[in-house]
Amino acid sequence: MTQPEAFFEPGFAEGGAELHLRDGGVWQLPVPRWSADAGPGDQRLLVRCSGATLDVGCGPGRMAAALSDRGVRALGVDVSPSAVAMARSRGANALIRDIFSLGGGRRWQHILLVDGNVGIGGDPVRLLWLCRDLLLPGGNVLVDVAPPGTGLQVTTARLVGAGGAGGWFAWAVLGFDALEVVAAAAGLRVADAWFVEDEQRWQAELVAADTWPAPRRAA
Rank of each mutant, 00 (worst) to 15 (best):
E5S: 11
E5N: 09
A6R: 14
F8V: 08
E9S: 15
G11N: 10
G11D: 06
G11E: 11
A13L: 05
E14L: 10
E14V: 14
A17W: 03
H20M: 10
L21Q: 07
R22L: 06
D23Y: 11
Q28L: 05
V31H: 05
R33V: 08
G39T: 00
G39Y: 07
P40H: 07
L45D: 01
L45Q: 11
V47Y: 05
C49L: 02
S50D: 03
S50N: 02
S50F: 00
L54I: 02
V56D: 03
G57C: 10
G59S: 07
G59M: 05
G61R: 12
G61M: 00
G61A: 11
A66S: 14
A66P: 06
L67E: 09
S68Y: 00
G71H: 05
V72C: 11
L75S: 03
L75A: 02
G76K: 11
D78R: 03
V84D: 06
S89F: 04
G91M: 03
G91H: 06
A92V: 03
A92N: 09
N93M: 12
N93K: 01
I96K: 10
D98M: 04
D98S: 14
L102K: 10
R106V: 00
H110I: 00
L112Q: 04
D115I: 02
G116M: 04
V118N: 05
G119H: 14
I120G: 08
I120H: 07
G122M: 10
W129P: 00
W129M: 04
R132H: 08
L134N: 05
P137V: 06
G138L: 08
L142T: 02
D144G: 03
P147Q: 08
G151R: 13
Q153M: 12
Q153S: 08
Q153C: 08
Q153V: 15
R158A: 10
V160P: 02
G161Q: 08
A162T: 14
G163R: 09
W168M: 14
A170L: 13
F176Q: 04
A178W: 01
V181L: 07
V182D: 01
A186H: 01
V190A: 01
A191E: 15
D192I: 04
A193L: 02
F195G: 04
F195Q: 06
F195S: 03
F195W: 15
V196G: 11
D198I: 04
E199A: 15
R201A: 15
W202M: 03
W202R: 10
L206R: 01
A208K: 13
D210Q: 12
A214M: 09
R216F: 07
R217S: 10
